[in-house]
Each structure stands twice: as structure tokens, then as C-alpha cells.
Design a protein around this nucleic acid. Structure first.
Length: 266
DNA sequence: CGCATTTGACCCCC
DNA sequence: GGGGGTCAAATGCG
């Protein structure tokens, strides 16, 4: 057991915009842990954290990597653990816990963020849904993200997809066909050659924040609950989201990370 | 074959 | 002692 190699795992999960709820000025620059042991010892010490409720827990502007999942006593749904993809590269100690609150239409999630990002990675955007999916529908309660391939535990990994494939408790309230579908593969091919992070504007545009669904919004979606290989943003108004994308396009720049991930979807 | 996810085991705190 | 958080070998897909 002495030589347990710590695998170099790559960034994987894209969260774009939204959840934030990051207290302004709440940047606690936590120094990198000197060792795993230390990290564990310190784990339960009080650390900066804040909670956000959202219908789009996976898109909060940062790249996350899932590192664990646990069934919580008296909780209907398992708790998922993510940490910043730049944890090693940039010693960013940001992490988040994701707990599905219910299986309504759409399901609501409670996201607990711990530690502020110190990686300086800027908000990560969802793909350019407009170009990828054609003209947006005139009236829609939301849209669907498709991750382009059959996925699995192999290359096309993003936490989101795996959630669906392996955790049936996640409801997918609306049939995918009703919404524009965003293909992450095409996004990659078009703008992101390899795994990249969006670097820039220092803060989330407020409009971006408000455009994403949180508990304050009133999701109204229709129909059935099935669990496709799609992810739904039930309460995102298309125009809002589209405007959001445009806004970021104006100010964001793309920066390639050190890692190379062939066929990896953001 | 590479690499992110899965998941059981381990460990710490309350 | 139990619950919760993290680790890391195994898994499995492209």
C-alpha cells in the first residue's frame, strides 16, 4: 500500500455560470495543504462555505472534478463531491458538495461551496448553443445539453453525463426533443482545441447570474420524467441565455491549460 | 492505451 | 462509535 500512486486525473466537469452566490470579498486564500494527512486533519475545521440552491448545479462557471460520492443518512439522494480541476496545477482548494434535494420537475439541488477559488480560472461557459443547435425555438421553457457521444466511464466524461448514466435518481423532466440541443463535441471542435478554460472577466456578469435558474426563478416545465442522456435547464429562458453567451463572447478569452485531453468534452 | 469516473475503504471529527 | 469527507485501485469506454 506504500506506493499508492495518485493518478493524475484531468479536469472534467464544466460548470458554467450561475450558482455563484459567492459572497463578495470572501476570498480566503487557503495555502496548499502540505500533505493529504494535513488536509484531512484540517478538513472539518471551520472553513469558508456557502450554500446555493439551483436547478443547474453543474454549471457555475468553474471546472470541477468529481472525487467522490456518498450516501448520506436520512437523505433521499447521494451527495456528490467535486473539487476544482486546478487543485494540483494551481493549488486551488475550492470544492463543492452537491446534494439533490428532490426529484421534482426540475430537480432542485443544494450546492455547498467550500473555499474560494484561487486558481484564477474564470467563468466557464456552456457551448455556443446557438451555432451548434441552429436557431433557437421561439418558445421554450429550457434547453437541453447533449454531450455528443455515448459516453460511459471512458473519455467523454463530464460529471453531468455520468450522473445520468449511473444515478437514476436524477430526474430529467422534459423530453429532450422539445428543446434545442447543445452538442459539446461541436463546441470543442469549433473553439476549443483541447481542454481549455475560459479566462477572464474577473467577475460573473450580473446578467449571467440572473439568467441562470436558481430557486428564485420559477421553473415551469412540462411533461414527463425520463432520464435520457440529456441534461435539462428547465427554467432558462432562451433569450436570456443567448444574451448571456453573447456577453461573454465579448469579454472572454480562451486559454489552453497544460493538459491534453483528446476527445474530452468540456 | 490513456484517463476520468466509480465505488469501497479509510480516516477524521463530532 | 457513527456519519461524513476523501482517497485511490479498479473499471470501462473511445
Amino acid at each position: 500500500m506504500a506506493s499508492r500512486l495518485k493518478r493524475k486525473q484531468g479536469a472534467v466537469m464544466v460548470s458554467a455560470l450561475g450558482s455563484h452566490g459567492l459572497p463578495e470579498g470572501m476570498f480566503s486564500l487557503s495555502p496548499p495543504e502540505s500533505s493529504t494527512r494535513d488536509a484531512r486533519k484540517k478538513r472539518k475545521n471551520k472553513q469558508s462555505s456557502w450554500v446555493n440552491h439551483t436547478y443547474t448545479p453543474y454549471f457555475d462557471g468553474h471546472l470541477w472534478r468529481k472525487y467522490g460520492q456518498k450516501t448520506i443518512k436520512d437523505a433521499a439522494y447521494p451527495r456528490l463531491y467535486f473539487r476544482c480541476s486546478y487543485r494540483e496545477d494551481r493549488h486551488c482548494m475550492a470544492s463543492k458538495r452537491l446534494q439533490q434535494v428532490n426529484c421534482q420537475d426540475p430537480p432542485l439541488f443544494e450546492v455547498t461551496y467550500m473555499h474560494e477559488h484561487t486558481c484564477n480560472a474564470e467563468p466557464v461557459l456552456p457551448p455556443d448553443v446557438g451555432d451548434a443547435a441552429g436557431p433557437p425555438p421561439e418558445a421554450s421553457d429550457g434547453f437541453v445539453l447533449s454531450f455528443g457521444s455515448s459516453g460511459g466511464a471512458g473519455h467523454h466524461r463530464n460529471a453531468l453525463m455520468h450522473q445520468k448514466l449511473q444515478h437514476p435518481y436524477q430526474c430529467q423532466p422534459v423530453p429532450a426533443a422539445q428543446f434545442p440541443v447543445t452538442n459539446f463535441d461541436s463546441w470543442n471542435e469549433g473553439q476549443l482545441h483541447e481542454k481549455q478554460a475560459f479566462l477572464p472577466p474577473n467577475d460573473f456578469p450580473e446578467a449571467a447570474v440572473s439568467a441562470f435558474p436558481t430557486v428564485e426563478s420559477s421553473p415551469e416545465s412540462s411533461s414527463s420524467s425520463n432520464c435520457d442522456d440529456y441534461y435539462l435547464f428547465p427554467s432558462v429562458d432562451w433569450d436570456s441565455f443567448r444574451g448571456l453567451i453573447d456577453q461573454f463572447d465579448d469579454h472572454s478569452q480562451y486559454t489552453t491549460t497544460q493538459r491534453t485531453y483528446s476527445n474530452t468534452c468540456l
